[in-house]
Every structure is written in C-alpha cells, then in structure tokens.
C-alpha cells in the first residue's frame, strides 16, 4: 500500500521539479535583461538586445558594455556563491538557521577590512578585496581548528558554536575599533551595507577562479550530503565518507562566501533564505536543491539590485539593504502558504 502511494507521488514530484527549475530559469533570464536595461539611464529592451549583439562603443552600447554587463556579471557571481554556500552550510550542520557567515567568514572579512582602513589607510573597494578575502580564509581556518579539535574530526554542533562565537568576538573588536576611530567608522558603515556599486571586471575576475572551484566542490559533495542528512551512523553504513565530505564542504563554503564578501561586502539573508525556498520547490534531494539554488539566488540578488536602482532614481540603494525587503516578504508568504519543511 505504501509503495503504491510512493509511486503515485513520484511522477508529480519530477514534474514539479522540472517545471520549478524552468520557471526559475525564465525568471533569471528576465531579470538579467532587466538588470541590463534599468538604471539612471534607461535603455529600451530592443536597444539592449541590439547593443549586446553589436558593440559600437558609444551611446547605449557603451552604457551596456562598460557599466551594466559587468555589474550584472558581478551580481550573478555573488548571488550564486552566497546561495550555494548557504545550501552547503545548512546541509552540513543540519541546521535550518545556518547561513554562510556562520563559519566566521563575514566577521573575518570585516576585521581585516577594518584593520586595512585603520592601520594601512585603505580607501577604495578594490583595495579591500584581498584584505577581505584573506580575513575570511584565515578566520575560517581558526574556526575549523577549534570546531574539529578532539577525536572524531569535525563535529557540526561544535563547528557551528565555534564559528558563531568567534564571529561575535571579532565583530565586537571591529565595533570597538570603529567607535574609537570615527574615520574608520565612516568607511566601514558603507562597506557594511553590502554594495556592487563601482565593482566591475577588475574586482570580479581575480576572485572568479576561487568561486568556480567552490562551485565544482559543491557539485561533488551534493550526493554524499544526501547520505549525511540521514544521520552520521546511517551515512557511514551507506558508504559515505563523512570526514572527507565535511572538509570539502567547509573549503567550498569558505571559497564561495569569502569570495562573495570580498567582492561586495557582507550581504546577508540570501544564503539563508534561498535554500529554504529551493527545498520547498524541489524537495529534500541536495542535488536538486543545488540546481534550484544556482538559479534562484542570483535571481533574488538581481531583483534586489534592480529595485535598488529604481526606487530613489537617480540615486540608488545598496543591494545588501534592498535584499531583505525583496526577499523577506516572499519568505513570509511561502512559509505561511505551505506546510514548511524542516531539513
């Protein structure tokens, strides 16, 4: 009887997954076009297509190729990185409240950027890049060492607590530095908002290899993560290498979240929210969640940036600030409408 029921639900689930992914793909494509078209100088859609095909180097074509396309590429990369990092960390810790910042990535980046501003007198986002990335990597290593101390390798609960705690301490140090140094405070409050203004190819390209490596690692561990979701003992008996999977996940999250934060500053919420939405659409299989996240996360970020560029034209709001106002209502509607699934 139960087997029959399972057969009945299998076909609709597959259809639901395919339809869901196609809809997400269409949404993403529409938002990419919108992101290229919308701005302080509006470019009509026909002109967008025209400019994309013939690069004349002046007028609309110049705006599209020198400003909009790089910015859209940055948003795509950052969105994918943050979304996938969030999906990985929630699967690893089996905690629906986990977000990419939980391993101390954002706090480490913030600390090093603050040090760079206060001690080395940095002034522009391009200069923050490597400080931010180095801080993110270094702090994650420390969190990992504390979180995996003792026998038996990485313990998810220990890792989570270590990351949150070290993150809180570093943020306290940063806020102390900022309160004592008004100039650093002024620059940090801008960095803190999370923005892609004046981030172009020169910021994206150096980080891109790290992001690509992170995505490849994520694809490699999506299958084993399904086994880990069943609990350590069952995963072991199914032949999953738990220790190796966890190490790979931590490396991938660090590369993805660290890279994204280096590019755009701390952008919260997308890594927390998108995996939930993806899970509600495609079910609990991590490989499908990864696919849906790859499409939904950049879509959310693009939508937020387009809104941020339109609401107070000709000025604009940082994408990190708009994000919550675009994403949170969707999340609330979804969690109210459906019987929300845990992990």
């Amino acid at each position: 009887m139960k087997i029959a029921v399972a057969h009945d639900t299998a076909a609709p689930l597959t259809r639901r997954r395919v339809v869901g992914l196609l809809a997400a793909l269409a949404l993403l494509a529409a938002l990419v076009l919108a992101s290229i078209a919308v701005g302080s100088r509006a470019v009509p859609l026909t002109a967008v297509v025209d400019a994309l095909i013939h690069d004349t180097g002046e007028g609309d074509s110049y705006v599209v190729w020198s400003l909009r396309v790089p910015r859209t590429a940055v948003l795509l990369a950052v969105g994918i990185a943050l979304g996938v990092a969030g999906m990985l960390i929630q699967a690893l810790t089996r905690n629906p409240l986990a977000d990419p910042g939980i391993l101390g990535v954002n706090a480490g980046a913030a600390l090093f950027v603050a040090l760079g501003i206060a001690v080395f007198g940095l002034t522009s986002p391009g200069q923050y890049l490597w400080f931010s990335f180095a801080g993110a990597l270094l702090v994650t290593v420390v969190v990992y060492v504390i979180g995996s101390a003792g026998r038996g390798g990485v313990d998810p609960i220990q890792l989570t607590l270590a990351g949150v705690t070290l993150g809180a301490i570093l943020y306290a140090v940063v806020s102390a530095m900022m309160l004592l140094d008004p100039r650093a405070f002024e620059q940090m409050r801008n960095w803190n908002a999370g923005s892609v203004v004046s981030r172009g190819w020169e910021v994206l390209l150096p980080v891109l290899p790290f992001l690509a490596a992170g995505i490849l690692l994520a694809m490699a561990v999506a299958g084993p993560l399904n086994a880990i979701a069943l609990g350590d003992d069952l995963a072991k008996s199914l032949g999953a290498n738990i220790g190796r999977t966890r190490v790979i996940v931590v490396v991938a999250v660090t590369l993805l979240a660290g890279g994204a934060t280096a590019i755009a500053g701390p952008i919260g919420f997308v890594g927390l929210m998108v995996p939930h939405v993806a899970r509600w659409i495609v079910g609990p299989d991590q490989r499908w969640i990864l696919g849906a996240t790859l499409l939904l996360a950049p879509a959310l970020l693009l939508a937020a940036d387009v809104v941020g560029r339109t609401v107070i034209r000709p000025g604009e709001l940082p994408v990190g600030i708009v994000m919550a106002f675009v994403g949170a209502p969707i999340l609330i509607v979804l969690v109210r409408r459906r019987k929300a699934a845990g992990l």
Binding site: P96, L97, R189, N190, N192, A193, G268, F269, L272, M273, H276, L317, P318, G320, I321, V322, M323, A324, F325, G327, A328, P329, L331, I332, V335, R336, A340, G342
Partner: peptide, 24 residues
C-alpha cells in the same frame, strides 16, 4: 515553532537593513 522562527528571521532581516540604511 519553525514558522515563528522563519518569520522572525525574515522580519529581523528587514529591520537590520532598515537600521543599516538609517545609519548610512
């Protein structure tokens, strides 16, 4: 419980953004 927390996170994210914007 789970719905309360997810709604809480969503509202909290909006408020955090609002606070950041006020500070800016």
């Amino acid at each position: 419980g789970f719905r309360l927390i997810i709604v809480g996170i969503a509202v909290s994210a909006m408020l955090t953004s609002f606070n950041t914007w006020l500070m800016l």
